[in-house]
Simulated assay, not measured.
Amino acid sequence: MKRRDFIKKSVFAVGSTLLAGSAMESLAAMSIDDEVSDSNESKQDKMKIVVLTGSPRRNGNSAYLAEQFIKGAQEKGHEVYRFDCAFKQVEPCRACNRCGMDGPCIFNDDFSELRPHLIEADMVVFATPMYYFGISAQMKRVIDRFYAINGRIKGHYKKAAYLMTYANTAKSDAEPMLLHYRTMMDYLGWESVGEVVAPGVWTAGSVHNTDYGDKAYRLGKSL
């Protein structure tokens, strides 16, 4: 091989190696950037979700919807805090106004446990059976205590969802409860992202024979 040709080939080989190395470094950097980006997006998308259940039946139909929603939300990577209203000691609001709608309540009960979670939550989910054409009393007393943190949650954007079960099948029977929920969302300035309404379920566990559990799961997974 002539000396001139040897030098040309050597320079070309070195240049190709450098280019290949540079390309590999660029690809590696892009890969790392993508991983960091995905990680940041994952952290940004992760929500703190509070799920309130209102049924005094531990294996009740609305409790099942809550469980399915939680399953879907946790599979998506969200952090869920569940508060079973019927199994907590929460006094009803006495309208004393000592809290001034943004201060400590006169009662030192289990609502104190829920309070910081509600304030920090990115989303609040309400799961209740229909009791005499309204939400359960156990859940209502918890909602009434929202008054003490009104200044911390009203106008502070949160997502919300509503899961309800009832024995009757007429859609009109569910409207008062849905109107209550929607009116509350309008007042608080929260965005409702879904409602799962399961009619015709009365005895404990009868919701298992429907597709409403899957709907609640898919709602949680869609967040």
Score class of each variant (00 low, 15 high):
residue 80 V to S: 05
residue 70 I to H: 02
residue 16 S to L: 15
residue 156 H to N: 13
residue 142 V to E: 03
residue 143 I to K: 06
residue 10 S to E: 03
residue 21 G to T: 09
residue 59 N to L: 13
residue 50 V to P: 02
residue 98 R to S: 07
residue 55 S to D: 08
residue 160 A to H: 01
residue 118 L to M: 14
residue 105 C to R: 05
residue 1 M to A: 14
residue 162 Y to P: 01
residue 86 A to E: 02
residue 149 I to A: 06
residue 197 V to F: 09
residue 58 R to C: 01
residue 113 E to G: 00
residue 15 G to I: 08
residue 123 M to Q: 12
residue 78 H to W: 13
residue 104 P to M: 12
residue 204 A to E: 14
residue 151 G to N: 03
residue 104 P to Q: 11
residue 165 T to I: 11
residue 28 A to M: 12
residue 136 S to N: 06
residue 13 A to M: 11
residue 214 D to L: 00
residue 77 G to Q: 07
residue 106 I to P: 13
residue 41 E to M: 13
residue 19 L to F: 15
residue 12 F to T: 07
residue 88 K to R: 14
residue 127 A to G: 06
residue 75 E to K: 15
residue 146 F to P: 01
residue 185 M to A: 07
residue 148 A to I: 15
residue 194 G to S: 13
residue 213 G to Q: 07
residue 86 A to P: 03
residue 20 A to R: 04
residue 99 C to R: 06
residue 174 A to Y: 12
residue 61 N to E: 10
residue 139 M to G: 02
residue 3 R to Y: 09
residue 72 G to K: 08
residue 176 P to K: 06
residue 153 I to R: 04
residue 193 V to A: 07
residue 97 N to T: 10
residue 161 A to W: 04
residue 3 R to E: 12
residue 97 N to D: 14
residue 201 V to G: 05
residue 195 E to F: 08
residue 11 V to M: 05
residue 50 V to I: 08
residue 9 K to C: 00
residue 38 D to N: 12
residue 109 D to W: 09
residue 117 H to L: 01
residue 155 G to D: 03
residue 37 S to R: 15
residue 146 F to G: 01
residue 51 V to K: 02
residue 118 L to W: 08
residue 119 I to G: 02
residue 192 S to P: 04
residue 192 S to D: 14
residue 43 K to T: 13
residue 158 K to Q: 06
residue 207 V to C: 07
residue 181 Y to I: 04
residue 132 Y to E: 07
residue 4 R to D: 13
residue 12 F to R: 12
residue 210 T to Y: 05
residue 48 K to Y: 08
residue 44 Q to T: 12
residue 30 M to H: 10
residue 8 K to Q: 14
residue 151 G to Q: 04
residue 152 R to D: 15
residue 171 K to Q: 07
residue 206 S to R: 10
residue 187 Y to C: 00
residue 6 F to K: 15
residue 86 A to R: 03
residue 205 G to N: 01
residue 79 E to T: 12
residue 119 I to T: 03
residue 40 N to Y: 10
residue 202 W to Q: 11
residue 4 R to W: 09
residue 217 Y to H: 13
residue 75 E to Y: 11
residue 8 K to N: 12
residue 140 K to Q: 12
residue 171 K to C: 00
residue 139 M to F: 09
residue 42 S to I: 11
residue 141 R to D: 01
residue 77 G to C: 07
residue 83 F to V: 09
residue 136 S to H: 06
residue 205 G to T: 00
residue 84 D to C: 02
residue 88 K to Q: 14
residue 124 V to T: 05
residue 204 A to D: 13
residue 195 E to H: 12
residue 217 Y to L: 11
residue 9 K to F: 01
residue 181 Y to E: 04
residue 59 N to E: 13
residue 161 A to M: 05
residue 53 T to H: 08
residue 107 F to P: 03
residue 141 R to S: 05
residue 117 H to P: 00
residue 7 I to F: 11
residue 131 Y to F: 15
residue 31 S to I: 02
residue 119 I to R: 01
residue 18 L to K: 10
residue 82 R to K: 14
residue 120 E to H: 09
residue 187 Y to H: 09
residue 89 Q to Y: 00
residue 67 E to L: 08
residue 102 D to G: 15
